[in-house]
C-alpha cells in the first residue's frame, strides 16, 4: 500500500532522513518509534507532501505521491496531529465536518453536521460539544475531536502523530482503544508515530524503529521484545545506556 524507498531529507546541514525504506501493507497498522528529533514526523509529512523529500520514492498503491491529482490523493488520507491542530475560529462540528463542507466531498450543511455529530459520538463525545469552540475543550477532548475529524470522510489511510502525548494514562488508554477500534472497523491502513510503548502494543500490527535517519528494525509487534536488535531493545526498555546516545 505505502512504500518508502531510500528516502533522504536534509534541512541545511542537518540530514534527518538518510535512506528510509519502509513498507506498510494495506489494512495494517504500522507504528513508527524512535527518539525525539529522529525524523518520524518528517517521514509522515513527506508521504503527505507537506515536506518535499530530497531523493528516493514514495508510492501509494504503486503510484508516486509526487505525480497525479493531488486533491484525489489527499482525499484518501486522514490525519490526527500531535496538538490536534483544530481550527480555533470554527466550532467543533465544523472542524470535524471541514472536509465535508468543501471540495469534492461537499455535502449539504445539515447532513455534514449530522455526520460530524455521529463521528463525535463515535469518539465518545456528546452532541453538546458540537457547538463549542476548540479552546473550550480539555486536551483529551481536543484530541478526540481531532480523531473525529481524521475519520470524518472515512479515509483509506489514517496517520496519527503522537496521539497520546500530553494525556493522562486513562485518557491515553481511551485514545489507544479508539484508534485500534476505528482502524479495525474501517479496515483502514494506519501509520502512527509515538514514544509511548503502551500505545505501540495497543495499536500496532507492525513496528518500525527509526534511528539516525534509517529504519533500524521493522517487524510484527509480537517479535518486538525478542528482536535481538540493540537499538530497539534499548528504546523499548528505556535504558539510558546502549547504542543510542542519551544526548543527541
Amino acid at each position: 500500500m505505502i512504500r518508502l524507498t531510500d528516502i533522504h531529507k536534509a534541512f541545511g546541514s542537518n540530514h534527518v532522513l538518510r535512506g528510509v525504506n519502509l513498507h506498510v501493507p494495506r489494512g495494517t497498522s504500522m507504528v513508527i518509534i524512535g527518539g525525539s528529533g529522529t525524523g518520524k514526523s518528517i517521514a509522515l509529512k513527506c508521504i503527505l507532501g507537506l515536506v518535499t523529500h530530497d531523493s528516493g520514492t514514495i508510492e501509494v498503491d504503486g503510484q508516486d505521491v509526487r505525480k497525479g491529482d493531488r486533491d484525489a490523493f489527499l482525499a484518501r488520507f486522514g490525519m490526527l496531529f500531535q496538538g490536534g491542530a483544530l481550527f480555533d475560529s470554527l466550532p467543533v462540528w465544523q472542524n470535524v465536518a471541514f472536509r465535508l463542507m468543501r471540495g469534492s466531498l461537499k455535502r449539504p450543511r445539515a447532513e455534514a453536521r449530522e455526520i460530524a455529530i455521529e463521528k463525535l459520538r463515535r469518539v465518545g463525545l456528546k452532541p453538546d460539544v458540537a457547538d463549542k469552540l476548540p479552546a473550550e475543550l480539555s486536551g483529551g477532548m481536543q484530541k478526540r475531536v481531532g480523531l473525529a475529524r481524521a475519520i470524518a470522510a472515512e479515509p483509506e489511510i489514517i496517520f496519527f502523530d503522537e496521539p497520546t502525548t500530553g494525556l493522562d494514562p486513562i485518557m491515553a488508554g481511551v485514545i489507544n482503544e479508539l484508534i485500534r477500534e476505528i482502524v479495525t472497523e474501517m479496515g483502514a491502513t494506519a501509520m502512527t508515530i509515538t514514544h509511548d510503548m503502551t500505545s505501540v502494543r495497543a495499536i500496532a500490527d507492525n513496528v518500525a524503529m527509526l534511528h539516525d535517519g534509517v529504519i533500524k528494525w521493522t517487524g510484527p509487534v509480537a517479535q518486538m521484545d525478542n528482536s535481538g536488535d540493540p537499538y530497539l531493545d534499548q528504546f523499548i526498555h528505556g535504558r539510558a545506556t546502549g547504542p543510542i546516545e542519551a544526548v543527541r
Partner: peptide, 10 residues
C-alpha cells in the same frame, strides 16, 4: 500545524 491540517483536508 493548522496550516498543515488544511492541506491534509484538501
Amino acid at each position: 500545524e493548522q496550516i498543515d491540517a488544511l492541506v491534509t483536508l484538501s
